[in-house]
Write a protein that binds this DNA or RNA. Sequence first.
DNA 1: GATACTTTGTGAACTTGTGCACGAAGTCGT
DNA 2: ACGACTTCGTGCACAAGTTCACAAAGTATC
Lengths: 219, 219
Amino acid sequence: MRQIPEATVARLPVYLRSLTDLDNDQHITISSEQLAESVGVNAAKVRKDLSYLGSFGTRGVGYDVKFLINQMSRALGLNRDCPVIIVGLGNLGLALSNYGGFEERGFPVAALVDSDPTKIGRSIAGHTVVGLDSLSCIVAEHPNVIGVITTPSSAAQDVADALGAAGVRSILNFAPVVINSPTGVSVRKVDLAVELQILSFYDQHRQRTARIPDVAKGA
Amino acid sequence: MRQIPEATVARLPVYLRSLTDLDNDQHITISSEQLAESVGVNAAKVRKDLSYLGSFGTRGVGYDVKFLINQMSRALGLNRDCPVIIVGLGNLGLALSNYGGFEERGFPVAALVDSDPTKIGRSIAGHTVVGLDSLSCIVAEHPNVIGVITTPSSAAQDVADALGAAGVRSILNFAPVVINSPTGVSVRKVDLAVELQILSFYDQHRQRTARIPDVAKGA
DNA sequence: GATACTTTGTGAACTTGTGCACGAAGTCGT
DNA sequence: ACGACTTCGTGCACAAGTTCACAAAGTATC
């Protein structure tokens, strides 16, 4: 099978969610047209994207919802155990630890980590906070774990390196700083201020340039 | 001045942060090469991006850091008052309300909104929760306010419509659902599960495809 | 002031992503 | 079984974004 384009990969999770909703609503099959409408893109794009996973559609009918969910989950690696470690228990880290959204969507919290000795040992949202030295242990137990960095910017690079050294292969970075990925580690960044600033830009320029670009790509 | 490409707009906030850091470190000027390194992109791209704002560099020297910060802030509309309204005080909404990161980065919280009568009137992080009917009042006081949706998916579209009707022109949506933008409103989406799923994909495919794409574009 | 050096700004090639349009392949009704 | 109809899969042209490469424009030194 050919290499899946980056733009397509970024859309697969969005399709997957729509499909899950449709499955819950008892839909058996769906056409590219319908799926396209529900995620807000072009139907041809949907078909092209899905075709990278294989030829799963039936002409004249559409795609089997359950089957597609299965294939897509497999492609995204969601049939494995996919826990997260939250590193940095400041405001945002605490918030995310108490936010149940991770587990709910198939990414259970494996551990909470902080370097502050006064925080280590505390219990937060059912987890006992451990130190950075416990990383390798955690990774040994959860080989596919994803590191979530919610430390201050100044600590982010060091934490990323520590995660990499401990064998973590994927990092989601909330610290507002560009991280130099350790070798073999992929990093994605989420930055709320950046999102707000982009919105601010388009708001300020709205008057002169009527067009408001579709900004779905922001995650 | 010509229309600024979308991809460039998404990078401006990242440049701005690097420049702010550099300014704090007493740097007076910076070359495109250095700035490129600090945000992890190609130097030519930096120059082209900055050239959309105007010809602010000096050949043989580079860019004046403070001047560039100024121009960029103006372009992003950050010299205005840019508050946010958080709508939906479930787990994530509460988390973000208590997270101080918004104000810290120039986006003070103007109000907390929920539709649940048992939540209205409560005080959270120094703000009294109000109902959806108060939206127009808030917008009247804060014309450039950005709506942050942290409701369950099922309520997101209705809230977006209510925000649009109240005069909000920018929305940041955390609900894992595609919103149909009310006319004249720009919407950006942040979805943590999507980010994790993308990471999961590349992790699973790492073995066979050595290349790990640089995923900086994720916000 | 002339020469060597640095760095910008941008035209042009190249890569990636999008959308159309249409043949292929299936279903459905008769 | 056959024709009408639906929908997929994909080749192709076009648009957007990236990178290269180099002239232009400045600084620094002697």
